[in-house]
Design a protein around this nucleic acid. Structure first.
Lengths: 337, 337
DNA sequence: GCCCTAAGATGAACCGGTTAAGTTATGCGG
DNA sequence: CCGCATAACTTAACCGGTTCATCTTAGGGC
C-alpha cells in the first residue's frame, strides 16, 4: 500500500522556498501575492500532491463547508417504500452542489442515533442542519437552534418555542382543489384516508378535508393510515365496510392511494366509474398505475432546493431569511378521478 | 438567538478545578482517573454543556469517525427511478449505525463534483470511502487507494491496477438459474434485454446469457438498455420487431422487465402465456406488477452491510480483508414466468 | 521514621492550518 | 539622493484538543 505521507503546508513552503503563510495565501486565492511566487507555490502544490488538512483548517476558520440533512426515521424505513426522501435529497443535493458544499446525510431513527446526531452537530462537524419531515413534537430542531446552529425544517415544526424557519407546501389548497374537482364531477360520498396525525402534513390534509366538505355540506368519512401502501389497503377496506356506497376517496398520499386502488379492485369496484380516487404527492409511479392516478402535485424537489438555499443564507448571517416559505401545490388530473 | 459560546476543555477544567489533560482523559473514558475527580469533571461537563470540538480532536487523532459512500451518478438520477441506491444506503447505514460511525453521502455526478469528492476524501474528512456501483473504468477508487485511504467497492471495479477490495453478487449464477427455469418450462426463443455495457453488472449478466444459451444450443437475441423502465420499453419493442415469435425475455433489471411487460401488453402479448418474462433485482414493486414478476433476487442490502463491515476492518488495519466477496443470488418465481 | 513504588494528576509539546502584526524590498515625489 | 508610502513576504500567536514525560503524593515494607 502506497501510504504516502500526506504533505503539509510546511512541506510545500520548504519546497517552494517561501513561508507557510505565503503558501496559505496562495492556496486560498489571496490577491496580494506576486505572480512569480504564486506560480512557484502552485507548482510545488502539484508536485507534492498537496491537499489542505480539513481538520486543521476548520479548527481555525470554524467552518466545515458541509451541511447535514437529518432524516428522522430509522435507516430501514427511509428508503424502502417511500419516495419522499429521495426527492428531498435530490433537491437539496443539487442546490448544495452548486454552492460547493458537502451534503452529509444522517438517519436519526433510534434514540442512540438521535443523541449522536445532536453531538455531531454541536461538535461542529457541519455548518448547518436541515430537517426532512418532522414526526410529532420533535425537540431537536429547537435544541440545535438554541445552541446557535443554523437550522431549517421541511414542513412546519409542531413546537415553535424557539421559532425555526421552515419550508412547506400548501396542503390545504391542494386538498381543496382535489375535493372541489370531485364535487364538480358529481361525487357526493367522499371519504378520505388520512395520514399519520403526529405529522403536520397528515394533520393539515385532514383539516383541509374537514373544512372543504363542511363548506359543501357533504357527509364526512375518515380512516387513518401512515402514508404507506399497506396502510392504504387496510384503510380502504375499512371505508368500504363502513360505507359500501361511497363514490370517491381522497388519500393523503400517493402510496395510500395505490393501496386504495388495489383494495377497490379486490372489492370489485371500478375506478373511476364506481369510485374516484385522488392521491397526494405525484410520485413518478403514479403515472404508471392502473388507472393512472389523479393526484395533488407537491413540489418536493423544489422544497429541498429552497430549504438548502435558505439555510445557506442563514449560515452566511443574512438576517432577512423569512420564518416560513409556503410553496404552491396543484392538481394533476389523470384517469382515476 | 442564544449563540452561547461553546465551552472548551479549558473552561471545563477550570470549572472542575483540574487540568485540561485530566478532563480529556475523563471525556475519553480513561481508567486511571480517581472516581471523585471523574465525577466532578462529569458534573462540570454537564453544567457547561460541553461537547468536544471535532476539528481539534481529529486534527490530532487523525480520524473523524465518519465514512463516505460515493454515488457516482448525478444527484438528479440517483434517487429518481432507481431503487438500487436506496437499498445500498439502507444496508450501509444500518451497519455503520451499529459501529457508531457517521455516514456521509456524496453524489459524484458532474466532473466538478468528482474533483470535489477526491479533495474531500484526501483532505481527511472521512476515515474511509465506499463506492456504490461503478460506471466504466472509474479511476477514483484506485486513486484514493493509492493515496492510502481505505476504499471498498460495491461491484467489481473494471480496472484492477491498484487492486481495490469489492463486494459483488453472483451475476452469472443468477442469470443461469433464470434461463434454466425458462428452458425447463419449454421456452426455446429466449431474448434478453441487456444492461449498459460500461458497467460490470451489465456485462456479466449478458455474458451469463451467452454462456447458458450457447450451452443449451439455443438461438440468441439481444437488445441493450440502461437499466431504466423506458429503455426496457424501447428494447422490448425492438426485440418483438426482430423476432415476433419469441417466447421469453430475460431482462437484466427489474425496471427494464417492467418496461418489457408494458411493451408486451401494448403489443397484445399475454404474459406468461405467450411470452415469459424474468427480471433481475427483486425490487419491492415487482411483487405488485401485473403479473407479479419472476426475478433474480440479489441481496443489495446485504451487500451494503458487508461492504461497510469490510471497510471498518480495513480502517482498523485488519490485514485479513479478502480482495473480493461474492454474495449469492436466487430465483424468485412469481407469475410472469 | 525513612525510602521506594506506583497511582494519579499536570505541564507542555504537538497536530496543520489561518491571520494579525511586523519586517523588508520597491517605487515615487520632492 | 533621501524619506516615506506601499506592496509583498515572514514571524508568531492562536484554534482546541491529545498524549507523553514529568512531577506529586499517598501507602507499604522494614
Amino acid at each position: 500500500m502506497t501510504t504516502r505521507e500526506r504533505p503539509t503546508l510546511e512541506a510545500v513552503a520548504r519546497h517552494a522556498g517561501v513561508s507557510r503563510a505565503t503558501v496559505s495565501r496562495v492556496v486560498n486565492g489571496s490577491t496580494t501575492v506576486a505572480a512569480s511566487i504564486r506560480e512557484a507555490v502552485n507548482r510545488a502544490v502539484d508536485e507534492l500532491g498537496y491537499v489542505p488538512n480539513q481538520a486543521a483548517r476548520s479548527l481555525v476558520t470554524r467552518q466545515t463547508d458541509s451541511i447535514a440533512l437529518i432524516l428522522p426515521e430509522t435507516a430501514n424505513r427511509v428508503f424502502s417504500d417511500d419516495l419522499f426522501f429521495p426527492a428531498i435529497i435530490r433537491g437539496v443535493g443539487s442546490e448544495l452542489e452548486a454552492a460547493n458544499k458537502q451534503l452529509v446525510l444522517m438517519m436519526a431513527g433510534s434514540a442512540a442515533g438521535y443523541a449522536r446526531v445532536e453531538r455531531y452537530a454541536v461538535a461542529g462537524h457541519v455548518d448547518g442542519v436541515m430537517f426532512a419531515s418532522i414526526h410529532g413534537a420533535d425537540p431537536l430542531p429547537g435544541l440545535l437552534a438554541r445552541r446557535g446552529i443554523p437550522v431549517i425544517c421541511s414542513g412546519r415544526p409542531m413546537i415553535a418555542d424557539p421559532p425555526v424557519p421552515y419550508v412547506d407546501v400548501d396542503h390545504a389548497g391542494g386538498v381543496a382543489a382535489a375535493l372541489r374537482h370531485l364535487i364538480a364531477s358529481g361525487r357526493r360520498r367522499i371519504a378520505t384516508i388520512a395520514g399519520p396525525q403526529d405529522m403536520v402534513a397528515g394533520l393539515e390534509r385532514l383539516t383541509g378535508y374537514h373544512d372543504t366538505l363542511r363548506a359543501a355540506a357533504l357527509p364526512e368519512l375518515v380512516a387513518t393510515g401512515d402514508f404507506t401502501r399497506d396502510s392504504g389497503i387496510t384503510a380502504m377496506r375499512e371505508l368500504l365496510d363502513r360505507d359500501p356506497d361511497l363514490d370517491a376517496v381522497f388519500a393523503a398520499s400517493d402510496l395510500m392511494a395505490h393501496g386504495a386502488l388495489q383494495a377497490l379492485r379486490e372489492a370489485g369496484r371500478r375506478v373511476p366509474a364506481d369510485v374516484a380516487v385522488i392521491g397526494f404527492d405525484d410520485f413518478e409511479i403514479s403515472r404508471y398505475s392502473d388507472p393512472p392516478l389523479t393526484t395533488v402535485r407537491q413540489p418536493i424537489g423544489e422544497a429541498g432546493r429552497t430549504m438548502a438555499r435558505e439555510l445557506l443564507r442563514l449560515i452566511a448571517g443574512d438576517p432577512s431569511v423569512p420564518p416560513a416559505i409556503i410553496l404552491p401545490t396543484d392538481l394533476v388530473i389523470r384517469a382515476s378521478a
